[in-house]
Amino acid sequence: MRAVQLEEVSKRFGDYFALKDVSMEIEDGSSVLLVGKNGAGKSTLLRCITGIIGFEGRILTLGMDVKKLGREVRRLVGYVPQNIRYQEDVKVVELVDYVADLKGVDVFLDEVLSPLGLQEVAYSRVGSLSSGMKQRLAISLALIGDPKLLILDEPFNNLDPMARNKLSELLQTIVRRGRTVIASVHTLSGLIHSFEYVAVLRAGRLVRILEADEVSRIVKPIYKIHVRVGESWRTYFTDDVFAKLSELADEGYDIRDAWIEEPDAEELLRAIGG
């Protein structure tokens, strides 16, 4: 069975085509990483798959036509929008109840919040949470009801490295349980290894779908490492962050004053001729 099937899907905002004739199939139980620069159409595609916005063409999500059965689709899908916002004066526990009520499921608060370490803020107001916590809350809410399909739009935004690791592990566990996962990113991070397929979007068109291993063979993500030396900064390029950091530390650099820039999707697009 296919988790998602898109047939000639287009989405236009005025004269601008955010998506143009996109057709693709995603098998049940697989994991797909949507890669593309900002404005490539990733968020629009994910919104169409969940039936949140209208579009031309046809999309079957979990075997249901999203144009006709959007509500039923969203009952079985967990979706994390990009830069999600909540009413600031609502408590976390109230949001959990609200989502669980709408999905028609009974949940234990701890079960929902503990996987991403949010149990301590259960009775806090959303407005008091940091951006990273809000992002973790969005993912926790999307997982309510054990969705058959999990859709995440830029899920690693605002997350620190530890939370990213935790989320990567969680996603792998979800895929192992036979659930389908689709996530979008605009940078090429180590995340590719957590997914089976990589779908590349450019200017609203689907350029190619590759196996994640193939992507790793085609392109080695090059990270930029900026290190402070005295009053100025020096930049190094590497495909192995940890090895380079060790090397710099051995050379006597103070790597507490350093930051790492992730390679963006442009590199992959160049490598596959997209």
Binding site: R74, I84, Q87, L102
Partner: peptide
């Protein structure tokens, strides 16, 4: 305008 509409629409509601 706040961006909270997408959250509501992402849930099983029409």
């Amino acid at each position: 305008e706040n961006g909270t509409l997408e959250f509501h629409l992402s849930l099983p509601v029409t």
